[in-house]
Design a protein around this nucleic acid. Sequence first.
DNA 1: TATGAATGAGACTTCATTCAT
DNA 2: GATGAATGAAGTCTCATTCAT
Lengths: 208, 208, 208, 208
Amino acid sequence: MNKPSKRQPGRPKTSDTSQNVKEQILALSSRLFMEHGYEKVSLDAIADACGVTKASVYYYFHNKAELFTASIVMLMGNVRHQTKLILDRPGSLPERLREVVRAYLQVRHSDFESMLREVRPHVTDEQMAAMRQAEGGIHELMAETFRDAMSKGEIGEANPLFLSHAFSALLMIGGRELETSPFSSREEAADAIVAFFCSGTHARDLME
Amino acid sequence: MNKPSKRQPGRPKTSDTSQNVKEQILALSSRLFMEHGYEKVSLDAIADACGVTKASVYYYFHNKAELFTASIVMLMGNVRHQTKLILDRPGSLPERLREVVRAYLQVRHSDFESMLREVRPHVTDEQMAAMRQAEGGIHELMAETFRDAMSKGEIGEANPLFLSHAFSALLMIGGRELETSPFSSREEAADAIVAFFCSGTHARDLME
Amino acid sequence: MNKPSKRQPGRPKTSDTSQNVKEQILALSSRLFMEHGYEKVSLDAIADACGVTKASVYYYFHNKAELFTASIVMLMGNVRHQTKLILDRPGSLPERLREVVRAYLQVRHSDFESMLREVRPHVTDEQMAAMRQAEGGIHELMAETFRDAMSKGEIGEANPLFLSHAFSALLMIGGRELETSPFSSREEAADAIVAFFCSGTHARDLME
Amino acid sequence: MNKPSKRQPGRPKTSDTSQNVKEQILALSSRLFMEHGYEKVSLDAIADACGVTKASVYYYFHNKAELFTASIVMLMGNVRHQTKLILDRPGSLPERLREVVRAYLQVRHSDFESMLREVRPHVTDEQMAAMRQAEGGIHELMAETFRDAMSKGEIGEANPLFLSHAFSALLMIGGRELETSPFSSREEAADAIVAFFCSGTHARDLME
DNA sequence: TATGAATGAGACTTCATTCAT
DNA sequence: GATGAATGAAGTCTCATTCAT
């Protein structure tokens, strides 16, 4: 029982630590989580994708839930930043929204709300709150934009937060498989989504 | 939960539980799948919920993917039927849509597209096609309704299939936790969703 | 991902179920636990010892703590039964106690109290209580015997439950490695223990 | 726990924490090992408790077994020293034993023999011998005391080493949880143990 | 002197699936 | 028609240990 078996554990002799392993784990795991969801992504898969061992991932993050939370928070921060860059450009609201949609459609992602429901049993209340806040940051940014547009008369009066939710919901239509989707290309999808977002169905009689 | 209560007066609903075990498995598993997703629902849980053994479930369905497919197809059929009943009533389009939204918001469900992506690795192409077709039935029904409304001038010209997708995407906003949701009640959510669906943001300048 | 790999899981084609697998798991695991303690005995080891798979053990017991509890309770029941058989024989108290000691010394066992402390974080309160009760049964049996002896004047007045604990504590001396032990044989150990139990150090001045 | 409190007047106890890290590791790890056993105490926990990193512990001790051995040897030396101080005081044997019992009952400890069996697979023969010798030192001290008492006629003739083992075995009764224990307080336990140690059960007929 | 980073081995547990009755 | 018993594969997590700085 004391005999050393063929290979001793421990840090390997040499390796070219590309630079920041923790950042890389976060970057890759966030992509995987967004694409496949929480449960489907195993720590083995993440470790493999990063070229390290499972135990190394656990060195940086105490458990899967913590890694997930960190991934999501970081990702949401990035998304918020990129979205802000686009929205700050000059141009009419529809023009800028179209750019946002185009940017979104390039990354494959599951429904964020579904994912949050999925991880609910695994994360602490603090972690849940952190993710909600990160998500809220994006909605806040969008809502601010809509509020601006309202004050300029670009769009009609409405609950800006609701508009943000509606916008993100419509975004998901564009991400669907071409097989099911009513569109034949990403561009077409982006145009249709924004057009609908701006004017809805043009219904004649507004309900009262 | 399985104990027969006092015995309700009148003709038994379906002929006691005994007769059609397969139907009951389908009914319960479809509920579970829609609420929690594919992977989270174990065959043990389904068997328990039905009061039978796991092996019995395998007697009726060759594997989990087949059970899932059958559940979804059946469920989609039911949804299509119920939706049709609502849409066939008299009244303006917004009025009827509001009824549809209210009906949807009463059942908790995950995003259907997310679920389809989740099961993709487990099902055969035929099963995938069957589920897509079942889903398509609902979209077809909705599209038909929109086509009608267009011909009557109730709403503006647009791709009816796209409108159906947009409608179902907006539906998901209403299902969110109150914590995150911009609404304070189901009723309010339903009204806001339909209002937005009909008129969008009232944007002034339509892009051309 | 759908391709069947070399070997399908499931029940193997044939096997000569010796008789009662659950009983055998209990029998073997109780032996292992008593000899090595809770943490040191892995479920792999138990499964191997029983000639079944780890998953089979989990079929009968939901988790390690439950298996441990069941093992201990069963074992304590057996010990109580065997001890009672010995104590019910005719003969003086010291004679019968010597038989009990000899029987104990044949099985290797760790300190029971240490083991209970070890499992404490893993078991529920109910499981803990069950094990305490099983242990208490043995102490109760011993205490009853001592009470009898007191009423007959065979031994002096004392707290019978304390005597039981003292007796079991002394038993552990006999189980020690010969290297450390002050005895050269099991027989000698048994005699010395009972002799000491009966008369202590023969101290002249009793403290008051 | 590491914060320097107000500053006690007088000469500092040992020369601040800085100087002798190795000693501190030994002191803390011995406490942890005695309280929880070998396997349950991880090197991470020890390092945390000492305010250093795991790697630092490895700087001083080649592996866990070596640290454990050193801890035990040191601890046993301390115990031997403290016990000797008590036994060298004036007074009758029972009086002095009672003091020893009281001192022991203040520190929580697992059964030492159980621990030795637990580490057996991890330590070398030399390490095992070292620990046995350290333990033997205490038994030798006790045995010497008993030998003295015999020569003075304070207690009857018996194997002094056996008496030492018996004494340490009885000590463990006092350490048990109050729930199981037949005593209601530490003092009561100490008195009962020593009383029993001196006179046993007062059995009438001594076996021959 | 001390440590941050990394790892192989192994532990417990879950689950879809199969076979014999 | 239904089920009890059994299993392989995979997943999360812990830990002693090692190396380079």
